[in-house]
Design a protein around this nucleic acid. Structure first.
Lengths: 111, 111
DNA sequence: TGACATATATAGATCATCGATATATAATGA
DNA sequence: TCATTATATATCGATGATCTATATATGTCA
């Protein structure tokens, strides 16, 4: 069951960069991997992913190369140094945000 | 330090309903309370809050009443039954989402 | 008196995501 | 052999949540 799409907002780039920090991947593979790892919570749409990848490539966050696999040409994405820095920042930001939400949700019971 | 605004997306309603589940509040008070409880992470803007409150009132999620305090008329908001149900749903959704993010961020190290 | 915090409100802009649609090849199965 | 489904990438327009800027009015403090 996917969650409200708007919750995803802002964390998609972080999640993609995290995947790419482990190994190079092509777009479709990212969608599948995100879906599997999140137990179907994240169902990233192709219409969201590809424009996002293009934008990240333009900004020098990712690099891309083509590779033929089984007669098909796939576009593999690789995380650049700039991307690793952004990933680290976003992971930090995520922790801050998640902790703040927890504070609001539990403060009432604690106080 | 506030986080990227887009991270907030989708969780603002939940946070407001949480506050109102504890006691009735007026708009400005909600902004201040969110800011304090989150250690300045959430800096909800008035331009975001008031239209949102109006919308939630229209949908029957909240009810509103006026109260004069120190010569000033404030609008106090109260959570309706419908709002309590929505809050419970959204808290559940938040847990699901946060866990899914954690899964993606940690799977690489675990696998 | 002037500045600042309190308090609410609206209009327009921005940005991330989605839905719909398009194209093309490989694999599967009838 | 033919149809269907999965794989794989791509773009366009719509949606929705938030922000910025602006407006108004009162109370408080210096």
């Amino acid at each position: 069951m996917p969650v409200d799409k708007s919750l995803l907002s802002g964390s998609t780039t972080m999640l993609l960069l995290k995947l790419l920090s482990e190994k190079d991947m092509y777009g479709y593979e990212m969608i599948e991997t995100l879906r599997e790892r999140s137990q179907n919570v994240f169902e990233l749409k192709a219409g969201t992913l590809y424009p996002l990848l293009h934008g990240l490539e333009e900004k020098g966050v990712l690099t891309v190369y083509e590779k033929e696999v089984g007669g098909k040409v796939r576009k593999y994405y690789s995380i650049a140094k700039k991307g690793q820095k952004i990933l680290a920042d976003k992971e930090e930001e995520w922790k801050t945000y998640a902790q703040a939400v927890t504070n609001v949700l539990t403060a009432g019971g604690v106080v």
